[in-house]
Design a protein around this nucleic acid. Structure first.
Length: 476
RNA sequence: GGCGCGUUCGUCUAGCGGCCAAGGACACGGCCCUCUCAAGGCCGAGAUCACGGGUUCGAAUCCCGUACGCGCUACCA
């Protein structure tokens, strides 16, 4: 089918998967989903020196975790060298490219000299080898593309409308390196043609090299895809997003406790919005409403506060069982340091109602619920004694709570609440005083989920045991 | 330096010639609720739409210029 929508995500395996890359992947994926198109994954590993082991695997893991599944690939450019060489041979044969024997030293000097002389005509390379039709192939060399020396390259960017560049301002860029690997420019064009890519959505930083690509398409006789250059993701100082200002690796974000839909929802809103009020989207709603033609043009600063808010919102709206599943998986990969035991699925399900609307990210749970997974809790007598109370009255309060709890027939949070509130009245102290004492006694924490639910969760035996420990503590 | 892109509350954004002396959200402040922490509810502060010229009866919205910012300018992608 000729008009099939085919997009690709083409990361280079040079580090951890970056938030910006993921956003590009998301926009491509959404576009493919809503157009019944194909989403292709291609690993651009043409730079052997910058390549990092496992980088591609991390990318794959991240995409799967987010649910951004692909229809074809991953293709690896390093396994497709023949295709590039064929294209390059064709270009040389047609005088659209030429071998260049200039040494890196010569190029370096050339640039230094010209920047000193402020020569405005000089662009990157002086085309020495383009003039000499010296075709000795034995000597080390690169291959350069012969850029048109006149005219303009004009294209209609889906995000930015018409963009135009003077051809003479693009240098005769290298398409084949001396290690026999193609550069990005060439491999990218050959592959996009080979894989019948219909739309190229990539970050704005690629905009200036687009005329190079278009001229390459023309020289090779390939049809030109539609382009859309996405606004960049920025750090708080408005420069290209970098890890100096926060986590940019999606792997780090996963380990902090963001959930897939939280990240997807947040990323979708960086450069796109539905209207003047809707902030929360499920993936299906994004597929339905997202519009690549309606993007913001300026860069967007990544606001981690807002990410957390969106993430928390989704955590709150998840059904408890699927939240439990996500927490369980999260804890498997990131066991909380303050736990003495590994939570089972059953235990995880039990604690969900207590923390669901108190957290923004999964890593916050362990602070709230640590007492439940600890063999013993730790606190001082001072922490036990509340404002307006002393050692004696605190002890009395604990004793009274003990007998009140012991006499409850139906041990659930509602009965527990009634019983303890009555105890406070009988003792003539404020509910807050009683409950705060119990909170410390039962959790060792000043901050916790609802006390009544905690008592139900702990059960009568563990509760009495911990109260006894407090009483003993104050007696010695 | 050259080239390109961009510019609405601190941040993400709505706005596509009159509905805007600019709306929403995050963050922030206050109040309510309340067993702590959250969540939730209500209220508030916050942008003369970078600046200057046009065009028009009318401009945040169209055009031009200036400034500023960012990106690119590698045998990196």
């Amino acid at each position: 089918m000729q008009n099939e929508i085919r997009v690709r995500f083409a990361p280079s395996p040079t580090g951890d998967p970056h938030l910006g890359s993921i956003r590009t992947a998301l926009f491509n994926w959404l576009f493919a989903q809503q157009n019944n198109g194909k989403f292709i994954l291609r690993i651009e590993d043409t730079d052997q020196s910058r390549k990092q082991h496992n980088s591609d695997q991390k990318m794959i893991t991240a995409l799967k975790w987010l649910g951004l599944d692909w229809d074809e690939g991953p293709y690896y450019q390093s396994k497709r060298l023949e295709k590039y060489h064929t294209a390059i041979d064709t270009l040389i044969k047609n005088n659209k490219a030429y071998r260049c024997y200039c040494s890196p030293e010569r190029l370096d000097n050339l640039r230094k000299q010209n920047s000193k002389n402020h020569d405005k005509k000089f662009i990157g390379y002086d085309k020495l080898c383009r003039k000499n039709s010296n075709l000795e192939t034995s000597k080390p060399h690169v291959v350069r593309f012969a850029m048109p020396e006149t005219g303009k390259t004009i294209f209609n960017d889906i995000v930015r409308n018409e963009v135009s560049f003077q051809n003479e301002l693009s240098e005769d860029f290298i398409i084949l390196k001396s290690d026999n690997f193609p550069t990005y420019h060439l491999a990218n064009v050959v592959d996009d043609n080979d894989m019948k890519i219909s739309h190229v959505f990539r970050a704005e930083e690629w905009l200036p090299s687009t005329p190079k690509h278009i001229n390459l398409y023309n020289a090779l006789g390939y049809p030109i895809p539609k382009y859309g250059h996405l606004p960049m993701l920025l750090s708080s100082d408005r420069t290209k997003l970098s890890k100096r200002h926060g986590a940019t690796s999606i792997i780090d974000l996963i380990n902090i406790g963001y959930i897939p839909i939280g990240l997807i929802n947040f990323l979708a809103l960086l450069g796109w919005s539905l209207d003047d009020k809707t902030e929360i989207f499920q993936t299906e709603e994004l597929i339905k409403n997202f519009d690549i033609h309606d993007l913001t043009k300026s860069g967007a600063v990544v606001d981690y506060e807002k990410l957390s808010w969106i993430n928390g919102y989704h955590i709150r709206s998840l059904d408890p069982d699927s939240l439990a599943k996500q927490i369980y998986e999260f804890w498997e990969l990131n066991p909380p340091k303050n736990f003495d035991t590994s939570p089972t699925m059953e235990e995880t399900k039990k604690i969900v109602p207590l923390i669901q609307n108190r957290i923004k990210i999964l890593s916050e749970i362990s602070e709230y619920i640590g007492f439940y997974f600890k063999k013993s809790i730790d606190y001082t007598i001072e922490e036990l004694i509340q404002k307006g109370m002393d050692l004696q009255s605190t002890k009395i309060a604990l004793e009274a709570s003990k007998s009140a709890l012991n006499s409850i027939t139906k041990f659930d949070s509602v009965s527990i609440e009634t019983s303890l509130r009555n105890t406070a009245i009988e003792l003539q102290i404020k509910p807050g005083q009683l409950l705060s004492t119990l909170r410390v006694s039962l959790t060792g924490q000043k901050i916790s989920p609802s006390l009544f639910e905690i008592i139900e969760l702990n059960g009568i035996d563990k509760t009495i045991e911990r109260i006894n420990i407090s009483i003993e503590k104050m007696t010695t």
